[in-house]
Lab assay of single mutants.
Amino acid sequence: MATGGRRGAAAAPLLVAVAALLLGAAGHLYPGEVCPGMDIRNNLTRLHELENCSVIEGHLQILLMFKTRPEDFRDLSFPKLIMITDYLLLFRVYGLESLKDLFPNLTVIRGSRLFFNYALVIFEMVHLKELGLYNLMNITRGSVRIEKNNELCYLATIDWSRILDSVEDNYIVLNKDDNEECGDICPGTAKGKTNCPATVINGQFVERCWTHSHCQKVCPTICKSHGCTAEGLCCHSECLGNCSQPDDPTKCVACRNFYLDGRCVETCPPPYYHFQDWRCVNFSFCQDLHHKCKNSRRQGCHQYVIHNNKCIPECPSGYTMNSSNLLCTPCLGPCPKVCHLLEGEKTIDSVTSAQELRGCTVINGSLIINIRGGNNLAAELEANLGLIEEISGYLKIRRSYALVSLSFFRKLRLIRGETLEIGNYSFYALDNQNLRQLWDWSKHNLTITQGKLFFHYNPKLCLSEIHKMEEVSGTKGRQERNDIALKTNGDQASCENELLKFSYIRTSFDKI
């Protein structure tokens, strides 16, 4: 039985969820670079991206490699990797027998973001014989899940209580170790020597080791999670996991709180800001991140802002960003909400898709409305799209047979046209069989910064309504002859009103 693990408890099935942008060198404390989270699957090609990484700022997932063999891993080693800020997950990587050479110096898994409450997941690794993470000293947050690894031993010899604050939620089941077939031998045991430290858990006094050649490092209890030197002297209180010299914040392997210019500090002093819960960055760093993602459509890219001495992905609820200094300031009234469309555009074809934009005031991208039916549609669209004030790209209304009016965009005031449909149009209306009105132009103002209007096959939309939009939106004169079809717009509506004058002759039985 794995020490510190839980057996036999019912657990939810383990679901495996399925960018080499360097964020800056980590400095003297770390020998390499800070790398983003990685999802490495199918083959070993991307694994080489770990070569210079000291910190993975995010998670590391290595999974679904069915053609790899043990010899493929023999020359692979990433000794610079010290810390993973989120979680480490391995799933069905064939041929991998140990992690001792792959990650010989991995010391800390912070667990800032977890995989279903777990910071370390080893699942269905069919050839893994031992973990071998002999320098792993601290899992700051989260638990361990090690399950269905039929060859995995050296679990009962690990004292997880020396690595985690609590072992109650560890789930370590259905491994070879369960069948008591392992016969784990710690260093020196074969020669009758006791080389590794022994600890007591559940009444068992057991030597602690990761492999037959690597003991588990056990520091004096007084050192807590700070770690200790090879001689057993406690590291500085700002260290986490390990250090090369005692009581020196510049000799830590990793930091308990924050890293700044080669030393570990309790908090980031001005003019620095907390970033990702582990390091200090200056304003320029946060500003660069903001600008890199301002026009990016890459998933996970955030326009970072500053709030409460932190550089964070977005302002919290009730705050909006001051564009001059990136500071989050309290909103006066309802907060603006910028919604970034991942692929640059979004099609609204149902109430469900409209709900995804609920509360958005600025759309960074283009909207395509293609709704053919739905219950209580006008009210639903207004509830979900009615706060949109600005669209950076274009607005396209296409084959939306259920629409009679666009009044559900009740606050839309600006279409920038930074991206144009077919390279020309910022407003595009095609084949809307029941569209009769755009907006009530006596109450609604709309500016279209650039781009043209396109109207074709809107049989109940009168040309007068379209011409009014040209005047109000500032697009009059931009359109070419064929942009607004004269014969297919309003051709099934009563669009022309003329005053009919009647004269009559009164007659009676005795007068003409």
Rank of each mutant, 00 (worst) to 15 (best):
N150R: 15
N202Q: 14
L44S: 09
I163L: 07
D247M: 04
N282E: 08
K67E: 15
G192Q: 15
K148I: 01
G183S: 11
K251W: 02
G188I: 14
L102H: 00
R279A: 08
G203C: 05
P330M: 03
S98F: 02
V173C: 15
D169Y: 06
C335Q: 04
C196E: 14
Q204D: 14
S143M: 13
D72M: 12
V218Q: 13
C252V: 00
Y94K: 05
N150K: 10
D247E: 03
E180Y: 08
W210P: 02
R141S: 05
H48L: 11
E97A: 09
S323F: 11
P336G: 05
Q245I: 10
A230W: 10
C234K: 02
V253L: 15
N309D: 07
A190D: 12
I84K: 00
C215E: 14
I109D: 00
P197T: 12
T329Y: 12
M137P: 01
K310Q: 09
N135R: 07
W210A: 06
E151Q: 12
Y30P: 10
I185M: 11
T199A: 06
Q287K: 11
D261I: 01
E238D: 11
Y154I: 08
F285W: 10
C252I: 00
N150F: 04
D169H: 13
G132R: 01
V121K: 00
L96S: 02
Y94C: 11
C239H: 00
Q287R: 15
T320R: 09
F258W: 08
K193L: 10
N105S: 11
D165E: 14
D159G: 13
C311E: 01
F205N: 15
L152P: 00
S225N: 15
G203T: 07
H59D: 02
K80H: 06
R263H: 00
M137F: 05
H59G: 11
F258P: 00
G318R: 03
D177G: 15
C264H: 00
I222S: 10
V144C: 04
S143C: 06
S166T: 15
D72G: 06
Q61I: 04
K294P: 04
F123A: 02
V108P: 00
T211M: 02
N170T: 07
E49T: 14
L164C: 09
M125K: 00
L81S: 01
M137K: 10
D159H: 13
N309E: 09
A156W: 06
L128M: 08
T68P: 07
E130M: 14
N150G: 13
L260I: 13
C235T: 00
E180M: 12
V200F: 14
R256Q: 11
G241V: 04
L326Y: 07
N308R: 09
L63E: 05
R256I: 09
H214A: 14
I122G: 02
L76C: 15
C328L: 00
V55P: 00
S237E: 12
I306K: 01
V206P: 15
L88W: 00
C301S: 05
D248L: 03
C239K: 00
L164D: 15
I201M: 10
H290Y: 13
P36Y: 07
E168R: 12
E57V: 10
P271S: 04
S296W: 01
C286A: 01
S143I: 03
E168W: 11
H307E: 04
V265C: 02
L60A: 01
A190W: 08
Q276W: 04
L327S: 04
L136H: 01
F115R: 05
M83T: 05
N175W: 13
F73K: 04
M137C: 13
T320S: 05
N282M: 08
K67Q: 07
R141F: 09
L332V: 05
P36V: 05
D165N: 05
M65Y: 15
V305N: 03
V55T: 04
C219R: 04
G37F: 06
N322E: 00
L240I: 07
D101L: 11
N257M: 03
G227W: 06
C228K: 03
E51L: 05
E97G: 12
S244M: 15
E130Y: 12
E151L: 11
Q276L: 08
A156R: 11
H290W: 14
G203V: 07
G203N: 13
N170W: 03
F205M: 07
G227Q: 14
D177Y: 03
L152Q: 08
D86V: 00
C219N: 04
I109A: 00
G37H: 06
S323T: 11
C228D: 05
D248H: 02
W160H: 02
K67R: 12
T199N: 10
F258T: 02
L136P: 00
L136W: 01
H307S: 05
H290A: 06
Y259M: 11
W160M: 13
D288V: 07
C331W: 15
Q61V: 05
A230L: 04
D159E: 13
H302R: 06
L155M: 12
E57F: 03
Y87N: 01
G111T: 00
I82F: 09
E57C: 03
N257A: 07
N117G: 13
R145E: 02
H302K: 01
V121M: 08
N170M: 09
L120I: 05
E238K: 03
V108K: 02
D86G: 04
P36E: 14
E130I: 08
T329V: 08
C286Y: 00
V305C: 08
N175P: 13
G227F: 05
K67S: 06
E207N: 01
C301Q: 04
E231T: 09
S284V: 07
T157H: 14
M65K: 03
D39W: 13
L152G: 02
S296R: 03
N43C: 01
L89P: 00
Q204W: 02
L155Y: 12
E151R: 10
T189G: 14
N150Y: 06
P220L: 05
R92A: 15
V305L: 04
N202E: 08
P197M: 11
R141K: 08
D178E: 13
I56A: 00
K217F: 14
G227S: 12
L102F: 12
H28W: 10
T85H: 04
C196Y: 04
H307F: 08
S161E: 13
N105I: 02
N202H: 09
H307Q: 04
S161Y: 09
M83F: 11
